[in-house]
């Protein structure tokens, strides 16, 4: 099992950041790497078990299933059903934790997966630096501008 873990501190309350990232169909609104997204079969995007079908800006198609959503823990867990990345048993968690001394929150994004031997490092970089850190950077920029 390969594990990727990225964390950051975002200058807005967990409530505020959560309202921006909670929508499982809302990635194109806040993540610069995502071009478009829809939920399959017209289901609600906060129904656990729903599947989002989206395209990355470089044209890749990805399908992911929502495994857990917690407004109490500010946490969302999902798995990849289909992607061009060549990963198996990929389960990711994005989670916010309030930082009580100031209007900011601690954000964590992690994933566990399996892949072909020799590709571990490349995938850890693409997912960790590209997808996760790229998303946090976009959130930091967004909330810094306000």
């Amino acid at each position: 099992m390969i594990r990727v873990y990225v964390s950051s501190v975002i200058d807005a309350s967990a409530d505020t950041v959560w309202s921006r990232i909670r929508d499982f169909n809302g990635m194109p609104l806040w993540h610069p790497g995502i071009a478009d997204s829809r939920i399959e079969n017209g289901e609600a995007s906060d129904r656990v078990g729903c599947i989002r079908h989206f395209h990355t800006r470089d044209g890749g198609t990805i399908r992911e299933r929502l495994l857990a959503l917690s407004d109490y823990d500010y946490q969302c867990v999902y798995e990849i059903l289909e992607s061009p990345m060549g990963v198996e048993h990929y389960v990711a968690t994005i989670k916010l934790t309030p930082v009580t001394d100031g209007a900011r929150c601690f954000a964590e994004w992690s994933a566990e997966f399996e892949c072909a031997e020799g590709r571990e490092r490349e995938l850890v970089e693409t997912i960790g630096d590209g997808v996760f850190q790229g998303g946090f950077d976009a959130l930091k920029r967004h909330f810094a501008r306000r």
Binding site: Y5, V6, S7, S8, V9, T97, V99, F106, E108, Q133, F136
Partner: peptide, 13 residues
């Protein structure tokens, strides 16, 4: 404690 990987700091809960 959790690492803040973006900046080499520490989140303390």
């Amino acid at each position: 404690l959790k690492p803040v990987t973006d900046g080499d700091r520490t989140f303390w809960h």
